[in-house]
């Protein structure tokens, strides 16, 4: 418990955690807190300004923007978390094997990762979606693939420094095999580094998902999505600026929250960043 209190002693951790918790809570309780059905159109109330009935106004089909933001949080968080977890599982395994076992696998897999990194993330995601077809699943897949190299390289470099530690040698000496050493001994020791990367990657994945939806390659309409709302909202920016402001605000807030959390986690796990007993 002392460790948890220590973590929350920093302001970045408190604010980051508060923002992320708030938005996650919003996503979970979406059916309860949203005043309207996010898909229900109302011809008589198109592009209305924020008022008591629609606190963030309505869009061009008369759908309640607040409800759409609340439900959009579900999509964003779902795709963000799932794609990053997928990327983490694949990337970490590549990194573990590349860092610990054969040099040939190391060379091949790392050059492959370099190739993936060489493309701008959005462009690569667009190409993957062009191949796999549009839809939430292929967006998720594209975002996952874009995120794999970060995990693979991070894991590999951590393992490279970790594998020269004495405890690894002593594990070998008592007869532990490579699988046991990698997954039972070394992986738990590098989890803290991975946590930081996961937090930051989720932020990037949510941004990328919004970008894809903005381009019309992410969540297909009429399902609510922040990126798609930004995209259509920009057409009405002069007539109804609140349409585009609110989704953008929530998106920015969530990204800031995740980054703050990631920063706080990194400071917390890094023994050099502050003095500890």
């Amino acid at each position: 418990m002392g460790r948890i209190r220590e973590f929350f002693s920093s302001w970045a951790a408190r604010i980051g955690a508060a923002i992320v918790c708030l938005i996650v809570l919003m996503a979970i309780t979406a059916p309860v807190i949203s005043p309207c059905d996010p898909l229900e159109m109302d011809e008589s109330a198109r592009l209305v300004k924020p008022n008591a009935e629609h606190i963030m106004g309505t869009d061009e089909y008369g759908r309640d923007i607040f409800s759409r933001i609340v439900y959009g949080a579900r999509t964003s968080i779902m795709i963000g978390v799932c794609s990053v977890l997928m990327a983490a599982v694949i990337g970490v395994n590549i990194g573990l094997i590349a860092g610990y076992t054969s040099r040939i696998f190391d060379a091949i897999s790392m050059r492959l990762m370099d190739a993936v990194i060489a493309f701008p993330a959005t462009l690569l995601a667009v190409v993957i979606i062009a191949i796999a077809g549009t839809g939430s699943m292929s967006a998720m897949l594209a975002i996952a693939i874009v995120n794999i190299p970060a995990f693979a390289r991070l894991t590999r470099s951590t393992i490279l420094s970790e594998k020269n530690k004495l405890y690894v040698e002593s594990e070998k000496a008592i007869g532990a095999g490579a699988v046991r050493i990698l997954y039972r001994e070394m992986l738990p020791n590098i989890l803290s580094t991975l946590f930081v990367q996961i937090t930051v990657s989720i932020a990037n994945a949510i941004l990328l998902e919004s970008a894809l939806s903005f381009l019309g390659l992410g969540t297909p309409p009429p399902a609510p999505s922040w990126g798609a709302m930004l995209s259509t909202g920009k057409n009405f920016i002069l007539y109804s600026p609140t349409y585009v402001v609110f989704p953008g605000l929530v998106l920015t807030l969530l990204i800031i929250g995740l980054y703050l959390l990631g920063d706080a986690l990194r400071d917390f796990f890094d023994p050099h960043s502050k003095e500890r007993d």
Partner: peptide, 15 residues
């Protein structure tokens, strides 16, 4: 065959 190392602190996984 077993071995005991010089540095007992480093040879045990701290976690």
């Amino acid at each position: 065959m077993q071995i005991i190392f010089q540095d007992p602190v480093g040879s045990l996984n701290p976690q």
